[in-house]
Amino acid sequence: MTYVVFGLFGILTLGGGILVVTSRNLVRAAASLVLSFFGIAGLYVLLEAGFMAAAQILIYIGAIAILIIFAVMLTQRVAAGNRVAMNSQWPWALLVSALTFALLVYIINIVWPLGIRAENVPVLAADPTRGLGMALVDWGQYVLPFEVASILLLGAMVGSIFIAREQHDD
């Protein structure tokens, strides 16, 4: 049963990903991106990381994907999306990506052999979301990165507003 669901979400994720990098129409690519994100959220649910799944949907689909679609529509004539999608060196890119993938599979196969079934998977802590929240504001753990992340977000926000603002003075 879980394998079926895993396969479903996996196909959603990877298929979405492939569509993202191949489709000529950028809005379609963005929609495929949403699909891929959704698949990953499903995988998170399978991994019993409910919080991450909800955050994935909220942030990636609700914010980032919409931002991207906006950007696509602002930088593109709406109907004219059918130009050449790839640059001249795409065979090289394909080769390098394939090489990297083979490398990764090779390494994964050494440490976690592919054929092995999952046995005695450790049990989850009582309330992982609460644990995550505690860890993020715990002095001994992640409070500093957490604060730095907030500053990063603020900086990104100010920076992007500044960059994207229309300059009227020239």
Partner: peptide
């Protein structure tokens, strides 16, 4: 940029 990137990754691989 893209050329730089895949070149460097190729060398890395």
């Amino acid at each position: 940029i893209q050329e730089y990137m895949w070149l460097s990754l190729l060398i890395g691989c």
